[in-house]
C-alpha cells in the first residue's frame, strides 16, 4: 500500500497521449489502491509500505489527475499535520522510526513539504525534532540504539547510518525540502551546516577512483574495513554515491555553499567516469530505485536538471535505454510486487517521468 500504484497511475493518466485501455487500467488500479488504503491502518510515518507519508504522497498524485480526490487528500493532510503536532519521538537511543525517511519523521516531512496546501507552521513540529537530532557536532543522537531485527542490516547496531533511506543524508534532504517550502529558518540552516561538515569528513576516495561515503559512519576506522563488514560495497540511491552526493549538493544549494555543491558534483562525476560500479546486486534489485538502475536514472536526471551536469544527462539516457530493454522482466514481477522503492512501480515511474511529466512523486525518494 505504498505510493507506487497511485504514482504510476497518475503519471499515465496525466500524459495527454495515453490510450483508453491504459487509462482504464490506471483508473481501476487507483480505485483498488484507495480501497486497500481506506481499509487498513498506517503503521508508521515514513514513505515505505504502510507509512503515512507514502500514503499522503500517493493521494497527492491521485488528486492531481482525479480532482474528486482533493477532499480525501485534504483529510489526509489534516490528519498528518495533527498527528505530527501531538506525537513525540526519541532524541537519544533512537531507532529508524525516530527519524528516518522510510519509517520516520523525515518521510513525513518530505510528504508535507511536497504538498503546496501545507502551511509553513504545519512543518514546525517535524523540523524542530529533526533539528534537535542534529544538535551535536558528531551527530551522536543518530546512533542506532534500539535493537534491530537481525535479519535486516544488523551492522547498523550502535552505529550512525550514512544512507539516504535510513540515515543522516535522508534527514538532510527532508530539511532542505522544508527550507524550500517554508522560507528562511536559522535553526534548519544551523542543523544542515553541522550535517554538511560531518558529511565532508565522512567522504573518502573509493579504490575504483570515485568519491563516496560509507554506509555507516567510519569513526576512525579505515573505510576498507567498513566495507568488508557489510554485504556489498553498495553505490546506489540508498548508499554512497550517487545518493549521498545528491544530498551534499542539495545542502550546498540551500546553504549557498559552492564548496559543498562542488563536492557533490565531483563525487557524481567521478562515479560516472568510473562506469557507475554499484557492487554485486541481484538481478531484480539491479532494476529498482533503491539499489539499481531506476534510482541511478532519477538521480542522473536530477543532477542534469538542477545542477546542469551534462554528463549526468548522457548517462540518464543510457540508463533509460538499458531499462527499456529489460521491460519484459517487469511483467512477472508485477504479479506480486507493487512497491515504489524496491519494485517494478519505481522502475515504471522513473521511465514515465520524461520532460513535461509531473515531478511531485520524486519527493517520495528525496528528489524533485
Amino acid at each position: 500500500t505504498d505510493a507506487g500504484t497511485p504514482i504510476v497511475a497518475s503519471l499515465v493518466l496525466d500524459a495527454a497521449d495515453t490510450d483508453e485501455a491504459t487509462r482504464s487500467a490506471a483508473e481501476r488500479a487507483l480505485s483498488a489502491w484507495l480501497a486497500v488504503v481506506g481499509g487498513t491502518g498506517a503503521s508508521h510515518y515514513g514513505v515505505f509500505a504502510e507509512g503515512l507519508a507514502g500514503r499522503h504522497l500517493g493521494l497527492l498524485a491521485a488528486a492531481h489527475v482525479r480532482p474528486g480526490l482533493r477532499r480525501l487528500a485534504a483529510a489526509s493532510r489534516r490528519a498528518l499535520v495533527r498527528r505530527t503536532a501531538l506525537d513525540t519521538w526519541r532524541t537519544s537511543d533512537v531507532g529508524w522510526e525516530d527519524y528516518d525517511m522510510i519509517m520516520g519523521p523525515a518521510g513525513a516531512l518530505l510528504a508535507l513539504a511536497a504538498d503546496p496546501e501545507v502551511m509553513p507552521t504545519d512543518l514546525a513540529p517535524l523540523t524542530a525534532h529533526l533539528v534537535t537530532l542534529c544538535d551535536r557536532p558528531e551527530l551522536e543522537r543518530f546512533r542506532l540504539r534500539q535493537r534491530l531485527d537481525e535479519r535486516y542490516s544488523p551492522w547498523n547496531q550502535d552505529r550512525i547510518n550514512v544512507g539516504v533511506a535510513h540515515g543522516v543524508p535522508g534527514v538532510a534532504l527532508a530539511l532542505c525540502a522544508a527550507l524550500d517550502a517554508s522560507g528562511d529558518d536559522a535553526g534548519i540552516r544551523a542543523a544542515l551546516r553541522r550535517v554538511a561538515d560531518w558529511l565532508v569528513a565522512e567522504a573518502y576516495p573509493d579504490p575504483l577512483g570515485f568519491i563516496t561515503w560509507p554506509t555507516v559512519a567510519r569513526e576512525n576506522r579505515p573505510p576498507a574495513r567498513d566495507v568488508a563488514e557489510q554485504p556489498t560495497a553498495r553505490q546506489a540511491w540508498c548508499y554512497g554515491t550517487p545518493g549521498v552526493a545528491w544530498a551534499v549538493w542539495e545542502i550546498g544549494r540551500v546553504l549557498d555553499d559552492d564548496g559543498l555543491q562542488q563536492l557533490g558534483r565531483t563525487a557524481i562525476s567521478s562515479f560516472l567516469d568510473a562506469g557507475c560500479p554499484n557492487g554485486n546486486i541481484a538481478l531484480r534489485e539491479s532494476l529498482a530505485i533503491c539499489h539499481g538502475d531506476a534510482g541511478l536514472l532519477v538521480l542522473c536526471d536530477a543532477f542534469h536538471r538542477h545542477a546542469g551536469l551534462a554528463a549526468a544527462g548522457a548517462v540518464r539516457d543510457l540508463l533509460y535505454a538499458r531499462l527499456r530493454a529489460r521491460l519484459t522482466e517487469l511483467t512477472p514481477w508485477s504479479a506480486t510486487n507493487y512497491a515504489l522503492l524496491n519494485g517494478p512501480a519505481g522502475v515504471l515511474a522513473a521511465l514515465l517521468t520524461r520532460p513535461g511529466a509531473d515531478r511531485t512523486w520524486l519527493y517520495t525518494v528525496g528528489l524533485r
Binding site: T5, V8, A9, L11, V12, A15, D17, T18, D19, A21, T22, A25, A26, R28, A29, S31, A32, W33, R324, L327, L330, T331, S334, A335, Y338, P344, A345, L348, L351, L352, R354
Partner: peptide, 18 residues
C-alpha cells in the same frame, strides 16, 4: 510517451487492479 513503457505500465496497473 514511449509506447513500450506505457504497455509495461498498463500490464503493471492491470495486475495492481486485480
Amino acid at each position: 510517451t514511449d509506447p513500450q513503457v506505457v504497455a509495461a505500465a498498463r500490464a503493471h496497473l492491470m495486475a495492481a487492479a486485480a
